[in-house]
Design a protein around this nucleic acid. Structure first.
Lengths: 229, 229
DNA sequence: GTAGAGCAGATTGCATCCAATCTCAAGATG
DNA sequence: CATCTTGAGATTGGATGCAATCTGCTCTAC
């Protein structure tokens, strides 16, 4: 065997050898924040100018985001913000339905009483939040339960699925809001209760049901995936 | 919205604008075939020379394989063939245990009688195959069931998990073989029977059990992950 | 009016070159 | 003898420039 220090340093966050990372991070945030819309074209030179780099690290960043499913690359043609179909979105929710409960189970032993109090606070705050606030709080509510256990694969995978559906969650939140659907909040409080009891099976069941119900709801709104096509 | 043709062509397999893809494909195959070992250093220039390209597309290829979990990159330092720990491997098997049954369920309606006959043939052929043949046949047995349904996320995900554990499956196969463990083949035939009956629930159960048992077995051989460290 | 061919401009892909950083072995220090 | 320092060589990271390809408009034909 030759070298032997791969998993050591996650690399310094700045300086030389980090331009690609930096661009990727910035672009990822922009996409998740909704500054770019699915289907929108991404030009290398624009990003290069904006972030003060050449096109080489920009291309690297695009490759990374492509792997995360946030960007679609076509050779010799260009890059677009990834657009997903209703079928793909349902698929991602079905995957989440199976693996997020597992991730929650892994994390359950690490959730402190203070964490639970925070979860309860977030669940309540969501009830009176506007769409953009809701997105932030909902994401914090769920993902904060997933960062405690030292999982190295599952956590990233779940976060990726959340990122890939972020834009569409924004759209659904608007629709559900206008329909006066409050089940979300009820389910959130049920989940907090199950977590408080450290009931792994029930926590899994509630979370799976939460994701499942959301999937069935979003299937009723295919227009979210087809407008502006 | 600006442009609007992302998901169209998967790009031509050769010519201009495919050097990165080509290198990535070749390197991926080499790693999966065991030509490289986990922890082995990968030098950009070597790959560039070998595949007749400059280091730029090589770096692109490395980024792609990093995203697939086959390569570990450290800024300013280099690239290594990814090495996983026992804990990570168990995690991947637990993920597979939850999502592969789902993928099988999706594919069940598309599996023809001819496909089933082929599965049976593969299951039988595996019983008298050496380690390297077994790896090929086992992979074909499982993954061939997953390519029929038009899944766009789940199929790739499962294939990735198979790839990331490929080297360790090779090692385990040797160990199990030496221990005279024949349960694998029994489970394969049980799975074929359940598929033949188009029994989705039972197919899921058998497949989950198959993966689960393998995970419990491999946990008994941590030496596979620590030797040569 | 609609469909197809063709060309200029824009954009991407890649090779080369130089700077920044790391590696590793030899030497110094305690 | 172990540990730290140091510097030359090796290796990676990024900017620039040119070739290949695509986009989208214009012109032509029917």
């Amino acid at each position: 065997m030759s070298g032997s220090r791969p998993a050591a340093t996650p690399s310094p966050p700045d300086g030389h050898g980090a331009a690609g990372q930096r661009v990727a991070e910035a672009l990822r945030t922009s996409i998740l924040d909704g500054d770019y819309l699915p289907g929108e074209r991404i030009r290398q030179e624009v990003l290069a100018d904006r972030y003060g780099a050449s096109r080489v690290p920009v291309r690297e960043a695009l490759r990374m985001l492509e792997a995360e499913g946030l960007v679609t690359l076509v050779a010799n043609t260009g890059a677009w913000v990834a657009r997903i179909s209703l079928a793909e979105c349902e698929e991602m929710y079905q995957i989440r339905e199976r693996i997020e409960p597992l991730l929650l189970r892994f994390n359950l032993p690490f959730i402190s009483d203070a964490d639970i109090a925070e979860l309860d606070r977030l669940a309540t705050a969501m009830e009176s939040a506007d769409v953009e606030e809701f997105l932030v709080l909902d994401r914090a509510f769920h993902l904060s339960c997933y960062d405690l256990a030292p999982t190295s694969v599952l956590g990233d995978l779940v976060r990726q699925l959340w990122n890939r559906t972020q834009h569409y969650r924004r759209a659904f939140t608007r629709v559900f809001r206008s329909e006066g659907d409050w089940s979300v909040h009820h389910e959130h409080h049920l989940l907090v209760a199950a977590i408080r009891r450290r009931d792994a099976d029930e926590s899994e069941r509630v979370l799976a049901g939460h994701i499942r119900r959301t999937r069935l709801e979003l299937a009723r709104h295919p227009e979210v995936f087809t407008d502006g096509a």
